[in-house]
């Protein structure tokens, strides 16, 4: 393969990328019980994809995660975050209706500091992690595209436009 960096970088990247991704999942899942959360987890998840992009080049990375799919992922994740925040507004009435109400915890309290005790917080973290992963990755791909402006970038940007 001509694209990307040297064999050493590619090999090391191949070894560590899985661990980075796993660590991102761990940070995201840990969020409602201890230090962590969707934002930091999502950044770490995005870093694993960015590592692939830097080591193997854009073409290989887009086979893993196409930026068009990432863009849709970001939108869907943001909307599901909002939908989770709206749960309390929809299913509660009167003085009990609150934005970001933890409706799931009210009905399934669980034991504090144990798994499944956070109500909708793990779900919010998951949505946030996907949103951050997708949007940071898309931003990086777009910045990387600027370097190829003269060769392939113009075609790339014209595929971004959604017409008159």
């Amino acid at each position: 393969m001509k694209e990307g960096m040297s064999l050493i970088v590619k090999t090391v990247a191949r070894w560590v990328v899985g661990f980075i991704f796993l660590y991102g999942i761990y940070i995201t899942a840990e969020g409602h019980l201890g230090p962590g959360g969707g934002f930091s987890g999502g950044i770490i998840l995005a870093c694993s994809y960015i590592l692939i992009l830097i080591a193997y080049g854009r073409r290989f990375a887009s086979r893993n995660l196409d930026w068009r799919i990432a863009r849709i992922m970001a939108g869907v994740a943001a909307l599901s975050f909002l939908a989770l925040a709206m749960l309390g507004m929809i299913f509660e009435t009167g003085g009990n209706a609150h934005f970001f109400d933890n409706l799931i915890r009210k009905n399934l309290p669980g034991t504090a500091f144990h798994l499944f005790s956070g109500g909708n917080i793990p779900l919010l973290n998951l949505a946030l992690a996907i949103l951050v992963l997708a949007s940071v990755f898309t931003a990086f791909v777009l910045l990387a595209a600027v370097r190829f402006w003269e060769t392939r970038g113009k075609k790339f940007f014209s595929s971004l436009e959604d017409g008159p």
């Binding site: 849709i72 909307l79 909002l82 709206m86």
Partner: peptide, 23 residues
Amino acid sequence: SSLLPYFLMIPAGLGFLIPLLGR
């Protein structure tokens, strides 16, 4: 008072929804 979050939800929700819709 229960209307207040809609001032954030409506524009933010539409803002994220619009790029998902096609032509």
